[in-house]
């Protein structure tokens, strides 16, 4: 049997059992809705949910862009100088271990603009993997190869451009994939913290709103959209990475 088909088959089976169980036990929709009720909740107001999803995704991708740009630049600074390494490394770790909900209120107060503060929050979460992976990749070429560059008179900059940056590419792509999923998580968490504060259209806000109104099927619909978006981001970045590496002739 095709192994690629197996997960979808398993999912179909699980959904079927779920629907049957909900019907057989007679649990009300506002406690545990069945899959059909969730689909119905989505169909009732698809634009509202999809616009919210779009808003969350815009924040996610903006954060991913900022995080990967900053991550690569800081990793390059660290590779270029020991002083920069000593200065950046501890702060990167502090940033990574601080829980977002703990600093999100502060960021929202400081930044002011709702969209920007959401992007900043999601960036904080998405920054570390792409930064740490790129830093590892920049340091990955064997010392003999670096010696060879020195032997032929290449300076730090040429060694960076011709050796360290290309060597870091696969590491960067792995980091980007992890950061992509985290940026979505960060965006949603920030939306929860921000609540209705001005930017009221994110998916997290839809979940909160539906919760207050006991529209549990709609909560589930929003949740399913979030999961699908997360899976799409993850596999999209994985495919992108594979295409780039194949184009370069790595695989």
């Amino acid at each position: 049997m095709n192994t690629a088909l197996l997960p979808s088959l398993f999912a179909a089976l699980a959904i079927a059992i779920w629907e049957i169980a909900v019907r057989a036990t007679g649990v009300p929709d506002y406690l545990v809705p069945g899959p059909i009720a969730i689909v119905r909740a989505f169909v009732a107001d698809p634009t509202g949910l999809l616009v919210s999803l779009g808003s969350t995704l815009v924040v996610t991708f903006a954060a991913l862009l900022v995080a990967s740009t900053l991550g690569v630049l800081m990793a390059m600074a660290m590779a270029a100088s020991r002083l920069a390494e000593a200065a950046i490394q501890p702060w990167a770790v502090v940033l990574q271990v601080t829980p977002l909900p703990a600093i999100a209120p502060l960021i929202i107060i400081w930044v002011g603009d709702p969209f920007t503060s959401l992007v900043v929050c999601a960036t904080v979460v998405a920054f570390f993997p792409v930064f740490a992976n790129t830093a590892t990749g920049l340091a990955s070429p064997p010392p003999e190869l670096a010696d060879l560059f020195r032997l032929y008179g290449a300076g730090r900059l040429r060694t960076l451009v011709l050796l360290r940056l290309p060597a870091a590419l696969p590491y960067f792509l792995t980091g980007l994939r992890i950061s992509g999923g985290l940026a979505l998580v960060g965006a949603v968490v920030a939306e929860f913290v921000a609540g209705s504060g001005g930017f009221a259209s994110g998916l997290a806000y839809r979940i909160l709103e539906a919760g207050y109104r006991l529209q549990v099927p709609r909560m589930f619909a929003a949740l399913v959209l979030l999961s699908l978006a997360g899976v799409a981001i993850n596999s999209g970045l994985a495919v992108l990475g594979r295409i780039i590496l194949r184009w370069r002739g790595d695989a």
């Binding site: 064997p142 008179g153 290449a154 290309p166 590419l169």
Partner: peptide, 25 residues
């Protein structure tokens, strides 16, 4: 200089690897 390992650049072709010293000059 030749090392114990070939220490070639893995993403570059044989010709690109041989071109490297000239490229750096």
């Amino acid at each position: 200089y030749v090392f114990q390992d070939a220490t070639l650049i893995p993403w570059a072709s044989a010709a690109e690897n041989v071109y490297l010293p000239l490229r750096l000059r």
